[in-house]
Design a protein around this nucleic acid. Structure first.
Length: 122
RNA sequence: GGAGUAGGCUAGGUUGUCGCGCACAGGUCAUCCUGUGUGAGGAAAGUCCGAGCUCCAUAGGGCAGGGUGCUGGGUAACACCCAGUGGGAGUGAUCCCAAGGAAAGUGCCACAGAAAGCAGACCGCCAGCUCUGCUGGUAAGGGUGAAAGGGUGAGGUAAGAGCUCACCAUUGCCUUCGGCGACGAAGGCAGAUCGGCAAACCCCACCUGGAGCAAGACCAAAUAGGGGAACAGAAGUGGCCCGCUUCGCCAGGAUUCCCGGGUUAGGUCGCUUGAGGUGCGGGGUAACUCGCAUCCCAGAUUAAUGACACCGCCGGUGGCGGGUUUGCGGACGACACGCCAUUGGUACAGAACUCGGCUUAUUGCCUGCUCCGGGU
RNA sequence: GGCGCCAUCGUCUAGGGGUUAGGAUAGGUGGUUCUCAGCCAUCAGACCGGGGUUCGAAUCCCCGUGGCGCUA
């Protein structure tokens, strides 16, 4: 049974990892957020979340980061277990939207790059 | 009912599902899994003040610089708080005030106006003369200005003026009374009545060394070749974290001994038990404080509190129900209330070493008081 | 997180208590030219917001807002 949790070990917490993904990954603009996607077969999949000053003050930044993380967590079960790293950068709209809306948008994103599993286990 | 004013409380809820940080216990003993407990604020914010704590030397003297400025009290401390005094705003409840000194000195008071700081003669008024004017006297009147050297009345005079007198206002001094005090009250004396600005320089009193947890201590890896201790220590030099100076402290060259030290992605400590909360009792008008009991209540570091559902709460729209509304009855309309459906909203905002304040942002409600309008 | 600095026409700036806030560029209008540039004339345009001190504040003081820099 696949877990729905998102531990610290499955997140990007290192400055160099962030720089690597942002430098070498592909930039995709999705309106409410931006995503840097780095696809390489040898990688364990992991995700990072950034909310800069442009989003707002501390409360809005926290909200935006949580919404992105929740959306990714819900979606993670249906993604390939390895082969990519992704960094989500929140924009101003992210704090206003619901996590379910973001998840639908993310699903479309991952499907386009072939990271969504063909056979849904659920 | 409306408007206002002061104070206080609150910061949606829970269970279910999924998820996160930390602590403890157990299983596995890299990892990871399970269970239990616990997990943001009144402003956590702005960083405007005050402290603790850490390092620089234990933080010294003088100057400069900076800060504070009615009185008494509270406090670890404050520019904060409480109680008062004086002044100001408002019909009032109530609120506001950096509120010492202008006879220590310097400076400034634009424009306008005759004159603006040892006052002053443009018009006017009065007197004189060599009479289309000039000279002298005069601050009662006009006009200017933010501000023109008290007000009213009488006497007085050439015309006038605290020039003189009475009363009133103000200021200073003295005495008595009340108050710890700021100050207040009463009486007397002095024609005294020659401004304002010190958030202009300044004077007086008091306070003030600097930097800040990215302080500071340690570990590991990589890199480069030095680093530390002891002895000695006159002068000179450098440092001691805004400046100057004095005093003081530390360091250097050589020798001897020892092997660790510096920097930087990273990690550990600092890191949460504290001027702590709650309850009861005492002291005090109050701020606050004393005693006893009891509790442990976030510690992250790409940074933990979220998502979904349901129920609340508030507003809009629609429907239904009973009720109120002119002397009576009825219809319509309006009004508030209850129920149901639907739709939207449910603030400001997120601990980062820790406290005490201030300021700003903001949700819902309660209580006291004041003014205005209406009814009985 | 901590510490510090700044704010004046669209832009860059002067002014540090006193007439209508000055200048340079950019802009509008008119002239010169066959036309444009340039030149000449002329016009419009600002003290970040709110309180306080003062007779009077862009200037002095306090509170806020926005922007920028330093620090491992």
């Amino acid at each position: 049974m696949p877990r729905e949790g998102l531990k610290k070990s499955e997140r990007i917490t290192n400055r160099f990892e962030y720089k690597e993904v942002i430098r070498e990954g592909r930039l995709i603009d999705r309106g409410a957020y931006k995503a840097f996607l780095l696809i390489r077969p040898d990688l364990d999949s992991s995700a990072g979340f950034i909310a800069g000053k442009a989003v707002g003050k501390a409360a809005k930044r926290n909200r935006a980061r949580r919404v992105l993380r929740e959306a990714y967590r819900r979606l993670k079960v249906r993604l390939e277990p390895g082969g990519f790293k992704v960094v989500f950068v929140a924009k101003q709209d992210a704090a206003r939207l619901k996590s379910t809306e973001i998840r639908l948008d993310m699903e479309e994103l991952f499907e386009r790059y072939g990271l969504l599993r063909k056979h849904d286990p659920c």
